[in-house]
């Protein structure tokens, strides 16, 4: 991940300030072609380029933050560490599952808009409690909102506990968290026949 140079930082800050002013006083004016970003947005989207191009930088930043709220880091890894955003960036590039991508984008864009409206900040830089408050409103909202939240949960679980070959579940640490051992196991039950007499062939109907 590259750090911004001091010059870039200054430029972004200046542009960001301009956008802020424009945003407040520019109501009714024609929209600028490329919206200028705020410093917070810059901070939120820093290094959040979606490699497969599935998400915009802001969506990808929101996805990082939102999935991490579903599975936060504690003594076990969280969603970001498990590669959930990278998994979704790759998986949702497949157009045949647009029916999963659509509701996810609805909640990502919606949560970002609510964060901006309520706290004037991108979702990704809010305090965890503020993020939880916004997500809870989706979980308990209208049926469409609830569906979008369920999809966010389900896709987070896919990234955290799916087969690592898809790019998530880094090093199988999601499996470990859930107590799952992939692959064949060597059962050490003794062969049934030797164990007890119920399995001896004997006609119990007589």
């Amino acid at each position: 991940m590259s750090r911004p140079t001091r010059r870039q930082f200054v430029v972004h800050t200046a542009l960001g300030f301009g956008a802020y002013v424009f945003g407040v006083y520019g109501v009714g004016c024609k929209k600028p072609e490329a919206p200028k970003r705020t410093p917070d947005e810059d901070a939120a989207t820093l290094g959040k380029r979606s490699p497969a191009g599935t998400f915009t930088a802001l969506q990808f930043a929101t996805l990082h933050a939102a999935s991490e709220r579903i599975l936060p880091h504690d003594e076990d890894p969280g969603a970001i560490e498990l590669g959930v955003p990278q998994y979704l960036d790759r998986a949702l590039a497949d157009p045949s599952i647009d029916f999963l991508k659509r509701p996810l984008l609805i909640i990502l864009d919606g949560a970002a808009a609510q964060a901006k409206q309520k706290y004037s900040k991108p979702f990704a830089v809010l305090m965890p409690e503020q993020q939880d408050e916004i997500l809870t409103a989706w979980q308990k909202g209208k049926p469409g909102d609830q569906h979008a939240f369920e999809i966010l949960m389900a896709l987070t679980f896919e990234g955290a506990f799916g087969d690592p070959k898809h790019g998530g579940n880094t090093e199988g640490r999601g499996f470990a968290m859930i107590g799952f051992t992939p692959g064949p196991v060597m059962p050490f039950s003794p062969p049934s026949d030797l164990k007890r007499d119920i399995r001896q062939p004997r006609d119990v109907r007589q």
Partner: peptide, 10 residues
Amino acid sequence: EGALWGKKLK
């Protein structure tokens, strides 16, 4: 609406 997530889920 009652689904667990976050720290509680972990």
